[in-house]
Design a protein around this nucleic acid. Sequence first.
DNA 1: CTGGGGACGGGGCCC
DNA 2: GGGGCCCCGTCCCCA
Length: 574
Amino acid sequence: MANFMVFHTQIASIMEMLANSAVADICKLIDDDYAVFRLEITQSQKENRALQRKLHILEMNVARERAEKTTQERVLASRPSSVKILDRYRGMARGEGHLTGGHRSFVKPAGHNTWRDDQPITVDDVSGTSTQHVILIESADVEAAAPGGSSLVKQERIEGEEDPQHSRDIQTGAAAVLVPPVATDHLSTTVPQPRTRCSITEVSGTPNATLKSETDTKTLTVTQRLLHTRSDHRLDPERQELGRLGCPLAPGSEYLLYGNPRPRTVHSHRDSGNTLETGNDPSCSYSTEMDPGNMPLGLETQTDLSRGDWNQYSSSVYSKGCQDEKGEGLVVDEVTVKVEGDAPLAWNVDETHLGEGNSQGRDFLDYRGSLKTNLNVATHSPLHTFRDRDPVSTSMGPSDSHGSVFFDQVLNSNDTARAQAQGGGTTSSNSKEKRFLCMFCNKGFSCPQKVEIHQRVHTGEKPFSCTQCHMRFALAGNLKRHQRVHTGEKPFSCPQCEKRFSQAGDLKRHQRVHTGEKPFSCTQCDMRFALAGNLKMHLKVHTGEKQFACTHCGKSFSERSYLSIHQQKNHSTL
DNA sequence: CTGGGGACGGGGCCC
DNA sequence: GGGGCCCCGTCCCCA
């Protein structure tokens, strides 16, 4: 029994020793693992800090890149001579629903003087889709700041998570003032040095980010020049190249330029795609979405840009513009522009696009012919100085400067003549009062609102629609007058007869019947006419459309025999 | 072909 | 500044 007790004690002792040993081993293992674990944690923390630093630097680079863009916008905004640009074509794009829908495409104008084809400045947000935009940035600055670390950063954003600042910067030129201080500082210090530029590239078809790095010192050089020559960029040789229109610079001009003649979003009724091709070659389909045939009717129900939206848009745009009568600011709105490669630019303005289905379509001109024949229609207004080729403006704006010049040409060719014929024109003696110029035709107006109204001539905007028919009008007064067609109202009565007229001009014209006045005389013969249209028809006699005109009375005949009969019958005694 | 009217585009002026 | 009105020019159509 005693032996048993001793044995039991020994066993217990051994068990205790074994237990202690086991605990010690376990503790030792735990300590070792803990040490390893702590070491790993420390290393991970170090890596995290390094990655955070890199991320921060990359964010700064992104901000810097944005700042470059926005600063360039400011360069445009701060155009000399207190010039202000209001891009009214955003409304056109709105009509396409692109902008309101969030679709934004900023494209390099093909053939742009200062942009290269390989410039990666392309931001394309497509709303309504789940497309993820991968911003891939590889910057030498990052490498320098975080040596040894990875320079690849993936940043994926889904729809709706768009950076508000980013969006704001892109959407409005006014946001150009919101340049991050860091970015501006960076610009001021590093711009002169070539550096790696960040490219924002949409990677389609790949769920994950891929790396794309582009070093474009040339672009930076251009950007730098633009950033630092805001006051003298008019003298930029490249901008001087704009002088192909023969537009000398006009320093100190007091003209304020309204409107943006850049072509806007194309809504071609013939082309399958709503495309606006930009490039060097002026062959670009252009039409306005003011398609009466497709327009909804009714002032109250219509929501297209031509009506309420348009008004709203215009008001917004011009309210912006009016905020800065001094020309201190710039409102540059973007317009969706889709570039298909570097397709040549061609502006095939087709009146069927412009006014199809509208009796007023006749007023639209085929600008192609005008473009051919009026390339030298020079306007000596300083406004052309500002039709620059600023890559920022073109990237942010609705189109490239080629389209702008095109508009200059074609619109000057048509509207300027009419405007000048009606006492307008930039060179009028009262140009000081009419210091608000239309960007399309240079016609001067006394206030911006009149420019806005006038520019409907060029834009095709017809905000006022008749609720009784499909007719649309650019002027409210014309709509009001038109409605007499439906009401039958004829408030103008002739005092000499029973006739009544819906328009005062009609009455006045009618009264020539009573007075015998014939103010329109033929320069080829002695015929006189009470109506200009009749004279115009008559002139065809002399222009060869009728080959056989009577030398006595001017009457013309399609065949010589008819003329002979006429002369024998009416002038045989002569 | 001419005369005449309907209707619209658009600039200028005034309130 | 905005709206209304006037006016001119123009196109189209018809008798």
